[in-house]
């Protein structure tokens, strides 16, 4: 799978609520990060994020979604990523970085939430497959007042 195909595959797993398979795409030291200043936020800056999760917290998120007592999932949320073609900024065969602009729709009942931005994937080769070391989601207006964002932009 090429890195660009990997990014499309990753989004499809989320859109199809195949969260366990999605988790398996992360490296052991993988991180999912939605910085509060979006693309303007430097890595390592002492600034907050909408989400900044290691594998343990991502597992917690996915486990919770399976619970019948996840009250906010009645009715359940659904999402759709619409991806633009990725731009590869680094690829040395074992590491790859690519940026993918996107539009993201999350719906629940009659409400729809529209987010836009671009995400950075920092991938590492594990055997023959790519794994996510970092998925950084840079939203437009990340620090605006948002309603609940329950799935994964």
């Amino acid at each position: 799978m090429t890195p660009a195909d990997f990014v499309v595959h990753e989004a499809r797993l989320l859109d199809e609520r195949r969260h366990d398979e999605w988790l398996a795409l992360f490296a052991d030291d993988g991180r999912y990060w939605v910085p509060l200043q979006g693309a303007a936020q430097a890595e390592g800056a002492p600034h907050n994020a909408l989400a900044d999760e290691d594998l343990l917290l991502l597992k917690l998120r996915v486990e919770r979604l399976k619970s019948p007592r996840a009250h906010s999932q009645h009715p359940p949320s659904r999402c759709q990523h619409v991806l633009q073609a990725s731009t590869i900024t680094l690829d040395d065969g074992t590491r790859c970085e690519l940026r993918t602009p996107f539009v993201y729709v999350e719906s629940r009942g009659e409400r729809q939430l529209l987010l836009a931005g671009s995400c950075l994937h920092r991938l590492v080769k594990a055997g023959s497959a790519w794994r996510i070391r970092l998925k950084r989601v840079d939203l437009l207006e990340a620090d605006a007042a948002w309603p609940a964002i329950q799935l994964f932009p």
Binding site: N48, L50, D52, R64, A70, A148
Partner: peptide
């Protein structure tokens, strides 16, 4: 971030 973010799994049920 964990408790009060729009992406918080704790807040989701509150909201």
């Amino acid at each position: 971030r964990l408790i009060f973010s729009p992406m918080s799994v704790v807040a989701h049920d509150d909201l």
